[in-house]
Amino acid sequence: MNISKYIIPVLVLSTMFGGYFLRHAFTQPTTSAIFESSQSGGNLEDNLTLTCKVQGVKCKGTANFFTKLYTDIAGISTLETVASDHKAVFTYNPKVISPDDIRAIMEKPIRLNNGSTKQIFTCLEMK
Protein backbone atom coordinates (compact mmCIF):
# COMPACT_ATOMS: atom_id res chain seq x y z
CA MET A 1 0.00 0.00 0.00
CA ASN A 2 1.25 3.46 -0.90
CA ILE A 3 1.83 5.96 1.90
CA SER A 4 1.14 9.68 1.56
CA LYS A 5 4.32 11.68 1.04
CA TYR A 6 3.24 14.00 3.85
CA ILE A 7 4.08 11.20 6.28
CA ILE A 8 7.73 12.31 6.06
CA PRO A 9 7.23 15.88 7.40
CA VAL A 10 4.82 14.53 10.01
CA LEU A 11 7.42 12.01 11.22
CA VAL A 12 10.17 14.63 11.11
CA LEU A 13 8.20 17.10 13.22
CA SER A 14 6.96 14.54 15.71
CA THR A 15 10.39 13.00 16.32
CA MET A 16 12.07 16.41 16.60
CA PHE A 17 9.52 17.67 19.15
CA GLY A 18 9.66 14.28 20.87
CA GLY A 19 13.43 14.63 21.13
CA TYR A 20 13.07 18.09 22.60
CA PHE A 21 10.77 16.86 25.37
CA LEU A 22 12.78 13.71 25.96
CA ARG A 23 15.68 15.82 27.22
CA HIS A 24 14.30 15.60 30.76
CA ALA A 25 15.03 11.88 30.70
CA PHE A 26 18.76 12.57 30.62
CA THR A 27 19.75 14.44 33.74
CA GLN A 28 22.89 16.44 33.81
CA PRO A 29 25.28 16.03 36.72
CA THR A 30 24.83 17.98 39.90
CA THR A 31 27.89 18.89 41.94
CA SER A 32 27.74 19.78 45.57
CA ALA A 33 30.40 21.04 47.90
CA ILE A 34 30.39 21.54 51.65
CA PHE A 35 33.14 23.87 52.66
CA GLU A 36 35.05 23.86 55.97
CA SER A 37 32.82 25.02 58.82
CA SER A 38 35.43 27.65 59.72
CA GLN A 39 34.95 29.11 56.21
CA SER A 40 31.31 29.99 56.91
CA GLY A 41 32.27 32.17 59.88
CA GLY A 42 29.82 32.67 62.74
CA ASN A 43 26.73 30.66 63.50
CA LEU A 44 25.39 28.22 60.92
CA GLU A 45 21.81 29.05 61.93
CA ASP A 46 22.35 32.58 60.65
CA ASN A 47 23.00 31.26 57.15
CA LEU A 48 20.81 32.23 54.23
CA THR A 49 20.27 30.61 50.85
CA LEU A 50 21.02 32.33 47.57
CA THR A 51 20.02 30.78 44.24
CA CYS A 52 21.71 32.15 41.13
CA LYS A 53 21.03 31.40 37.48
CA VAL A 54 24.52 31.36 36.02
CA GLN A 55 25.33 31.55 32.35
CA GLY A 56 28.44 29.40 31.84
CA VAL A 57 27.58 26.54 34.22
CA LYS A 58 26.66 24.00 31.57
CA CYS A 59 28.45 20.71 32.29
CA LYS A 60 30.27 18.92 35.06
CA GLY A 61 33.58 20.50 34.05
CA THR A 62 32.31 24.08 34.22
CA ALA A 63 30.38 23.31 37.40
CA ASN A 64 33.56 21.99 39.08
CA PHE A 65 35.47 25.04 37.92
CA PHE A 66 32.72 27.29 39.25
CA THR A 67 32.77 25.51 42.62
CA LYS A 68 36.54 25.99 42.90
CA LEU A 69 36.08 29.77 42.72
CA TYR A 70 34.41 29.63 46.16
CA THR A 71 36.70 27.14 47.89
CA ASP A 72 38.52 29.70 49.99
CA ILE A 73 35.86 32.35 50.32
CA ALA A 74 34.88 33.19 53.89
CA GLY A 75 31.16 33.17 54.63
CA ILE A 76 30.12 30.40 52.22
CA SER A 77 29.20 27.06 53.78
CA THR A 78 27.79 25.04 50.92
CA LEU A 79 27.46 25.34 47.18
CA GLU A 80 25.41 23.10 44.92
CA THR A 81 25.37 23.47 41.14
CA VAL A 82 22.80 21.98 38.79
CA ALA A 83 24.29 22.08 35.31
CA SER A 84 21.04 21.24 33.48
CA ASP A 85 19.34 24.31 35.01
CA HIS A 86 22.48 26.48 34.92
CA LYS A 87 21.86 27.00 38.62
CA ALA A 88 24.04 27.49 41.68
CA VAL A 89 22.66 27.38 45.22
CA PHE A 90 24.79 28.91 47.99
CA THR A 91 24.29 28.88 51.73
CA TYR A 92 26.15 31.83 53.12
CA ASN A 93 26.55 33.93 56.22
CA PRO A 94 25.19 37.43 55.49
CA LYS A 95 27.35 38.89 58.29
CA VAL A 96 30.47 37.83 56.40
CA ILE A 97 29.57 38.02 52.71
CA SER A 98 26.79 39.66 50.68
CA PRO A 99 24.97 38.41 47.55
CA ASP A 100 26.72 41.15 45.57
CA ASP A 101 30.12 39.88 46.74
CA ILE A 102 29.13 36.35 45.68
CA ARG A 103 28.11 37.65 42.30
CA ALA A 104 31.33 39.65 41.89
CA ILE A 105 33.41 36.51 42.52
CA MET A 106 31.78 34.53 39.71
CA GLU A 107 31.85 37.45 37.28
CA LYS A 108 35.51 38.33 37.86
CA PRO A 109 37.46 37.86 34.60
CA ILE A 110 39.69 34.79 34.69
CA ARG A 111 43.20 34.54 33.32
CA LEU A 112 43.36 31.95 30.53
CA ASN A 113 46.31 29.76 29.54
CA ASN A 114 47.18 32.07 26.65
CA GLY A 115 47.62 35.01 29.03
CA SER A 116 44.39 36.81 28.11
CA THR A 117 41.54 37.36 30.57
CA LYS A 118 37.89 36.51 30.01
CA GLN A 119 34.67 36.63 31.99
CA ILE A 120 33.44 33.02 32.03
CA PHE A 121 30.34 33.21 34.24
CA THR A 122 27.51 35.72 34.28
CA CYS A 123 24.85 35.84 36.96
CA LEU A 124 21.54 36.24 35.14
CA GLU A 125 19.26 36.10 38.17
CA MET A 126 19.60 36.03 41.98
CA LYS A 127 16.94 34.85 44.43
Binding site: M16, Y20, H24, A83
Partner: peptide
Amino acid sequence: EGQFTCALGPLNLSMLVAI
Protein backbone atom coordinates in the same frame (compact mmCIF):
# COMPACT_ATOMS: atom_id res chain seq x y z
CA GLU B 1 32.89 9.68 33.76
CA GLY B 2 29.18 10.42 33.99
CA GLN B 3 29.64 13.82 32.42
CA PHE B 4 28.83 15.52 29.16
CA THR B 5 31.68 16.59 26.93
CA CYS B 6 32.45 20.30 27.07
CA ALA B 7 29.43 22.37 25.95
CA LEU B 8 27.14 19.40 25.31
CA GLY B 9 24.14 18.37 27.37
CA PRO B 10 20.98 16.22 27.68
CA LEU B 11 19.31 17.84 24.67
CA ASN B 12 22.09 16.61 22.37
CA LEU B 13 21.46 13.10 23.59
CA SER B 14 17.67 13.26 23.30
CA MET B 15 17.99 14.72 19.78
CA LEU B 16 20.27 11.82 18.90
CA VAL B 17 17.65 9.33 20.13
CA ALA B 18 14.97 11.19 18.13
CA ILE B 19 17.07 11.08 14.98
